[in-house]
Amino acid sequence: MIWEFNFAMFLFLVICAIAAITVRNLLSAVVIFAAYSLIMAVLWAEMNAVDVAFTEAAVGAGITTVLFIAVVSRTTRRSKD
């Protein structure tokens, strides 16, 4: 446990979370959300939860991104609200 590394990762995590809900372009939001999942997987692995990190990397950064992109390509790309 290196606290500087953890602190930097948490900072990136918060930045990614805020950016994912404020950005207008939904495709950008999906990509930022994939980056969020990747940082979260690194954090899980750093907290010795390898199984959870595996699931986060496979489902959060892999499958969900593909499904979100499929949904964005079928609906609008701009957020209305």
């Binding site: 390898v50 199984d51 496979a58 499958i63």
Partner: peptide, 20 residues
């Protein structure tokens, strides 16, 4: 590390890659 759920997701991602 791993298990049925993660392995199944990885196996499905091969088909998804093929579909893309």
């Amino acid at each position: 590390a791993g298990g049925g759920f993660q392995g199944g997701v990885i196996f499905a991602s091969a088909f998804i890659l093929y579909g893309i």
